[in-house]
């Protein structure tokens, strides 16, 4: 058992093993960070001299700027819509029995196993059939479909941890269902709602494969712009951008961990 108090040889081997695996997990981030400061335009390791110039280029490159703003638009819409749709459905799942309940649940959770390129291709064909263009609504719909399972999961776990007797107590005190929802249920769900929204936002901002299918030059998001860049150039600009990505994401996750307890959100902590 790797982490018992007695440090047996088995335990030490376990600790070492975990350390090596975590090293594997973090290696690319470390390597990409060093590369980002490489002064030369050729991808080589280790760098001969260091500079910040690739960060400057990453931040000023037109496609990245456009992709960043596109991404923000798509993410803001998609995560907010997914939050509203997902919390409502989580509430219904948790409280009520209704016809087609399990079918609807299965369909909405299926994007967890349906390949993203399949969903992207399907929406692309659908838009062609309906002769609607590849505008923002199509990209947003794709993102809502893809991040909804995560919102659903997050809100549903919060609902399970919510003591149902609080709602009963409120209604016994004369509160109408609407009043119970807005004064008791939703306020107590705030951590789950915020973390669900945050999850949705991060995943949406990073979504690539489906977006590649449903976006065009005008609606392409940052990951698509990055993909197109890496196919054309081999300089460390993307490394610099990746570093910014990694720092911002790790920061957001640390904050989420501080405020909400990441373990609870991900359901890896026993209650």
């Amino acid at each position: 058992m790797p982490f018992s108090m007695r440090k047996s040889p088995l335990a030490l081997a376990g600790i070492l093993l975990v350390a090596i695996i975590l090293g594997f997990v973090m290696l690319p981030a470390i390597v990409v960070t060093i590369t980002a400061f490489n002064d030369k335009a050729i991808l080589a390791f280790p760098p001969q001299s260091y500079s910040w110039r690739w960060f400057a280029r990453a931040l000023s490159y037109g496609d990245f700027q456009k992709g960043f703003w596109n991404g923000l638009i798509v993410t803001a819409w998609a995560s907010t819509i997914a939050l509203i749709v997902g919390s409502g459905f989580a509430l219904a799942l948790h409280r009520y029995a209704f016809s087609l309940k399990s079918t609807l649940e299965a369909v909405l959770l299926s994007p967890l196993v349906i390949p993203h390129f399949t969903i992207g291709l399907g929406l692309l064909i659908l838009s062609a059939q309906l002769t609607v263009g590849r505008g923002f609504p199509l990209v947003v719909l794709a993102h809502v479909i893809l991040v909804l399972p995560f919102v659903l999961r997050s809100v549903f776990i919060s609902l399970q941890n919510l003591d149902g007797r609080l709602e009963l107590a409120a209604s016994s005190l004369g509160a109408s269902p609407r009043r119970v929802l807005f004064t008791v249920t939703l306020p107590l769900l705030v951590p789950g709602l915020v973390s669900g929204w945050l999850f949705a936002a991060i995943l949406s901002f990073n979504e690539f494969t489906a977006t590649l299918f449903v976006s065009n030059q005008a609606t392409q998001t940052l990951p698509v712009a990055m993909y197109n860049y890496v196919r054309e150039y081999a300089d460390p600009t993307l490394a610099a951008l990746s570093v910014i990505y990694i720092v911002v994401t790790a920061l957001l996750l640390t904050l989420a961990n501080l405020f909400f307890g990441l373990g609870k959100i991900l359901n890896v902590d026993a209650h």
């Binding site: 990073n206 690539f208 990746s242 990694i246 994401t249 996750l253 990441l262 373990g263």
Partner: peptide
């Protein structure tokens, strides 16, 4: 937790 979960949020391209 953060070391093992962060990559999930970096996206495939990065």
């Amino acid at each position: 937790l953060i070391a093992s979960v962060t990559p999930l949020f970096l996206g495939e391209v990065v």
